[in-house]
Design a binder for these strands. Structure first.
Lengths: 410, 410
DNA sequence: TTGATTATTTTGGCGTCTAAAATAATCGTT
DNA sequence: AACGATTATTTTAGACGCCAAAATAATCAA
């Protein structure tokens, strides 16, 4: 149920919608904020004064002489999120590879650093300490203290448990249940969010395209693996424990092809890079899946398919069928408004899509499948980072700055 | 995004949580309401005075001499929802069979009526008019006017479209896209909700057991068909158009058994009554599915299985496997906290469950399946009705009475 | 320089909440 | 039967947030 309401709640909520408007629509004058939020000018004055006082937003200095908008009347004074209000750090972990990005409160990237930190063979507890140390060095190296960072977010392939702050299972780690957040929180005193990478792509999509803000959008990532993020009513859905869904490890065919996860018949075992490759090369479905695929090998395979090589074409078709049935099952369960395909796997979309659409048509009642929009987005490698940053900043807006000023104790 | 907040919103929200507390916990004194809601006694006095003024709640007269609670101090005065505040009508439509139930605002059943109205062969537009007429007769027959009814809710197997107020597809109708709500709204002037029956079971579960109010619960109905209702964060999820999910028509095996819907390989084509029967009787998967199964035939089949007949045992196992893989796929997509089995099909649970649990284990990463609680509830035929009534009353609480008094114009 | 125009702030009033004080309705005890 | 103790409810006074309207500020145009 919802909470009781009082004047405190009113102010918190209105602070939040003001911050949301500034984050989404960029710099706005008070009068524009009033129109965007539905609040009266008087209230905007009061709220913005408080936010300025709290050093969360600021008035934008108009560059010399740029004030001439050609309009009469008192000129507007735009407000913006104050870059130095706080910072966030987004971290992406792949096999033996950790990328860290520091941004200011506006989301501008201030620093980026890629480190080779061994993940796969790391012992369980050691990695967390290692990462905490790297993060500390990264932050202080930019002339900031840990108190200047409000949140740290970690994106990773596999199943993350945001409650315990550990990685339940990931292809980047041999070990299971690798704890991460506790070591970082202990060393830096900064709250940590751990999330699945496909969910972070969904976050990115959500903040770049408001078409996904209503209803349900499923973002399906294909590439080295297959993942999915769900946007339900404008919020990215994180399962029971924040674990996200495991679309890639949904069963496609009982007793089917061998998957990286050790099971049989997962969607991923037909549609991930390694699966397409082994199928095209006639290696059979029981070959132990490779863990790292050189992107050029996929490019070469696509070229072979385009030149008409039957085995290559069939491999992509099989991938499309597995994805399509997976999407059909998703539609039967959730009836989403949109399905968005993303990730490097979409480079071969022309080879995959016909079989994919056929499978959707075969796999679900037409009354449902007809309503669903299936589309795709161009994949930039930075989508995961961008999404993580946005998720972090939104969390700061809502959980921290809607309450009052950030305490910079210590 | 959320709305701007003002004092009006505060009062609306607090009115709502007061009504929620009374609906859920029964009659409460003002002081108890204060504890239940977190509001101060002063506010409760103000809010309850308004609700009494609006004739939505009332003070409960203590029966003669029953006041002796043995306690000192001023005795409490309990408040209750006022039965006559308004009424709702729940309707359940099965093949050629319509049941209507009238309840007061407390949810007490005042009248019930089962009518044989032809559905399956009815022409598209005719049925809505027919039903509207029956409803009008039912309501006036109880000495009420249509203005005394705040909502009418219709539960039906199949896909309902609550936006247009029509039945997209249902086994109870030969026709597709049967419009219902418009005719009723036109004749009676009462808002109509149309919903899938499995969703209504979920509503019933939600209001009877608060364990389902957090996280995700999937309620799976088995019997004449297979359906599912989803409870997400304390609310029953109605797909894009209120269509609900079509778990029963999720594909289990490509090119598999023939389903009532005309497709192949749906879960229902293995796990519904008709599917189990045809499988046990060795009729093959291509036999056109029967539409109505006499319950005694299922009872007989269960007896045969218990006596050790191999074909009967295998049929139930096949049903369990199909359901289990369906649930495994559901878990991969949504990672729910609980899966609840309901419906007449659960009478054969002992025959189904081993295969079902095996399939779940085979079909999804253990890290996920281990966290999910799979349970079942005893099936009462009235669960659908009870759920519909609760959904209607909650809608009235929130959408009507949180705003102000109900206008009884005309 | 003056008036028109538009943005922002100030003022005054309203609604809701809460804490604390007042009142009401009992029971127990003398 | 009267009085104090006890608990429930209402009243009172003060705080905070919102809004409408008035006042002020900062510009352009004539």
């Amino acid at each position: 149920m919802s909470e009781k309401a009082d004047s405190d709640l009113v102010r918190r909520q209105n602070r939040r919608i003001v911050l949301d408007a500034l984050r989404q629509q960029g710099n706005l004058a008070r009068i524009e904020l009033g129109r965007a939020t539905g609040l009266s000018p008087a209230s905007i004055t009061a709220i913005s004064a408080q936010l300025i006082e709290d050093e969360i937003i600021q008035e934008v200095d108009v560059p010399f002489g740029a004030a001439l908008t050609g309009k009469r009347g008192r000129p507007i004074v735009r407000l913006s999120l104050k870059p130095a209000a706080t910072h966030v750090v987004a971290v992406k972990i792949s096999i033996d590879d950790v990328v860290m990005v520091l941004t200011d409160f506006q989301g501008k990237i201030l620093a980026e650093q890629a480190s080779r930190i061994p993940t796969y063979e790391s012992e369980q507890a050691g990695f967390g300490r290692h990462l905490a140390k790297a993060l500390h060095g990264f932050i202080t190296g930019q002339g900031l203290g840990t108190r200047d960072v409000a949140r740290i977010g970690i994106a990773i392939q596999g199943v993350a448990d945001n409650r315990s702050g550990s990685i339940t299972w990931s292809p980047a780690f041999r070990a299971r249940n690798v704890p991460l957040a506790p070591a970082i929180v202990e060393r830096l005193g900064v709250p940590v969010m751990i999330a699945n990478d496909a969910n972070m792509i969904a976050e990115g999509l959500l903040s770049s395209d408001r078409a996904h803000a209503s209803g349900i959008t499923a973002v399906i990532f294909t590439g080295y693996g297959v993942g999915m993020g769900l946007i339900i009513n404008g919020k990215v859905y994180h399962g029971a424990t924040g674990a996200a869904s495991e679309f890639g490890h949904m069963n496609h065919l009982p007793e089917g092809a061998l998957c990286r996860c050790g099971r049989r018949g997962c969607v991923e075992a037909y549609a991930a890079d390694y699966a397409i490759l082994r199928s095209a090369d006639g290696k059979g479905n029981d070959v132990a899946p490779l863990s790292a695929i050189d992107p050029t090998r996929m490019t070469a395979l696509m070229a072979r398919a385009h030149q008409g090589e039957a085995a290559a074409i069939a491999a992509f078709e099989t991938a499309g069928t597995a994805l399509g049935f997976g999407i059909a099952r998703l539609i039967a369960i959730l009836n989403p408004d949109r399905v968005v395909l993303a990730g490097p796997g979409t480079r071969a979309l022309d080879l995959i899509e016909p079989a994919l659409r056929r499978a959707i048509a075969d796999g679900v009642v037409e009354a449902l499948s007809r309503q669903v929009i299936v589309e795709h987005v161009a994949f930039g490698t930075d989508m995961i980072m961008r999404g993580t940053i946005n998720a972090l900043l939104r969390a700061v807006d809502h959980e921290v700055f809607s309450q009052g000023p950030l305490e910079k104790t210590g």
